[in-house]
């Protein structure tokens, strides 16, 4: 899980360069102004590249915070659906 959070932090830093490292674990779509619909898709695709996985667009609406995404990725790793 720690490895997933560290790699996810890198993804967030790539998509939201203005975000301080300390702010990333608490990031949500509500608290990050730059997290609009375009950024959401970009973040999703960067995560797909980092974790060598496919994320369904249908899941996008629920992936609205760092914690939610980390939990989603952990579930996928547990299910064997990711290169994490």
């Amino acid at each position: 899980m720690n490895d997933i959070r560290a790699r996810l932090t890198t993804c967030f830093a790539t998509v939201f360069p203005a975000l301080e490292a300390a702010e990333i674990p608490a990031a949500t779509q509500k608290t990050v102004a730059a997290w609009d619909s375009v950024a959401a898709i970009t973040l999703l695709n960067v995560i797909e590249e980092e974790f060598n996985t496919q994320i369904d667009f249908e899941a996008l609406a629920d992936l609205d915070s760092f914690d939610a995404i980390a939990a989603y990725l952990s579930d996928r790793v547990a299910a064997g659906n990711s290169g994490a």
Binding site: C11, T14, V15, P17, T42, N45, V46, E49, E50
Partner: peptide, 12 residues
């Protein structure tokens, strides 16, 4: 180029 690399390129 991957999307991640593209975003990092923009930062340079």
């Amino acid at each position: 180029m991957t999307l991640t690399e593209a975003l990092r390129e923009r930062k340079r």
